Simulated assay, not measured.
Amino acid sequence: MRRRLCWHPVHRCFGWCGARGGAGADGLLWHTDLKPHASGDFSIAVVQANNSLEDQGQVLASPSTTYFGVFDGHGGPEASRFVNNRIFSHLHEIASEQGGLSVEVIRKAFNATEEEFLQLVKRSWLSRPNIASVGSCCLVGAITDNVLYVANLGDSRAVLGKQGSDGRSVVAERLSRDHNVAEEDVRKELAELHPDDSRIVLCNRGVWRIKGIIQVSRSIGDVYLKKPSFSRDPLFQQCAAPIPLKRPVMTSEPSIRTRKLTQQDLFLIFASDGLWEQLSDAAAVDIVFKSPRAGIAKRLVRAALTEAAKKSEIKYDDIKHMEKGVRRHYHDDITVIVIYLDHFEGKASKLQGSTFDCTSAPVDIFSLNAATT
């Protein structure tokens, strides 16, 4: 399904858009096989494992700019749904005000989304104080004028598939940094930021966590770990144990990378950590390189589920027929977006039923946002 939608207000335009498996298929898997964007095609898929789907994924395509994002929630689905509804609106509005996309525009859009979620927490405080403990990883990509921007909070991951030196193979290049304390450099970064707190990162049963609570060090939300007054509030302590914080232990400052795309850059894989827990960067890139385009995101999800089943010594069909909630014991929610990069002029015509300008005119929005599931 394809929709012509206006930017203003973007958050009213979102809804689930895609195909769901038929009889005998995985009833918790949604996908869009292949759609056009300004410099190629894209495919998107999501599979649910939690009782409430905490992953969100979205692509916005216009003739001049393509936005795509993966938002992996934790503590509940509220933050990831909020980010899915708001961050591209902020990006577009700020880019329009400042004459185009830039690193500073992206930084401001992330800050605006974080501030807006904070205001939501404050408005909801008396009725839902536990919303202060909800957060979301946030991985955003944008392509404009043949320049790729990648901005990241948390441990969703962007990987580029590029042509090997022999011209016949593919090489994986990671474009984002995992803000997860499983990574030694992230633990070191936190230790340097908190020299007076020897317990800033704790290992419990082989898993590193900030203050013994959370693995990711950057996010949208998680207000109680960014503003100590929330965690000290008696209302919050009715639904969570008190956390003695001297200062914030998380941040919403994104890592941002820019890259001029070349003819050797073949495709991008943007995915939540549910995929990367099962597949290496190289394995995922190899699957995309060797497979037909149509349904490629779904193919990556199924490869991850097959690997998850193998680890638990069960069959893929066993996982496929499990109910949400139960499946979380075997794999996480998984969202995958594959963006093909074709690098030739005229590709934008696939999007143009009529001529329109990205700064004020309609765009096509493709969103796997199963908010009611």
Rank of each mutant, 00 (worst) to 15 (best):
W125V: 09
L118N: 09
E104Q: 14
I106R: 14
E104L: 08
F68C: 11
V134G: 02
G135L: 07
L91D: 00
S102E: 11
E104G: 08
A79P: 01
A132G: 11
G100F: 10
N130L: 14
N85I: 03
Q119S: 12
E114N: 07
V134Y: 02
E104A: 09
L118S: 08
I87K: 11
L118E: 12
F68E: 08
K108Y: 10
R128P: 04
H90K: 14
P129F: 07
F68T: 03
F71H: 05
S96A: 08
V70T: 00
G100D: 13
L91S: 04
A79L: 04
H74Q: 09
F71A: 00
D72K: 00
A95R: 10
K108C: 09
N130A: 13
H90V: 05
G73R: 02
G73H: 04
F110V: 13
F82R: 07
K122H: 08
C138M: 10
N111S: 11
S127I: 12
R81H: 07
R128W: 13
G76Q: 01
H90F: 15
L126H: 08
P129A: 12
V105H: 04
E93W: 09
E93G: 09
A112M: 11
N85D: 08
E78A: 00
F82Y: 08
E115N: 12
I131W: 05
N130F: 13
N130M: 14
S133N: 10
V103M: 08
K122F: 01
H90C: 13
E78W: 02
S133R: 11
G76K: 07
P77T: 07
S89K: 06
I131S: 03
T113F: 03
L101V: 15
S136Y: 03
Q119D: 11
N85A: 15
S96M: 05
N130G: 12
L139V: 07
I94T: 09
H90L: 12
G73A: 05
F71S: 00
G76L: 01
N111P: 00
V121N: 05
S136N: 02
K122A: 10
L118R: 14
I131V: 15
P77A: 03
S127N: 14
P77Q: 03
G135N: 04
L139D: 01
L101R: 09
N130I: 14
S102T: 14
V105F: 07
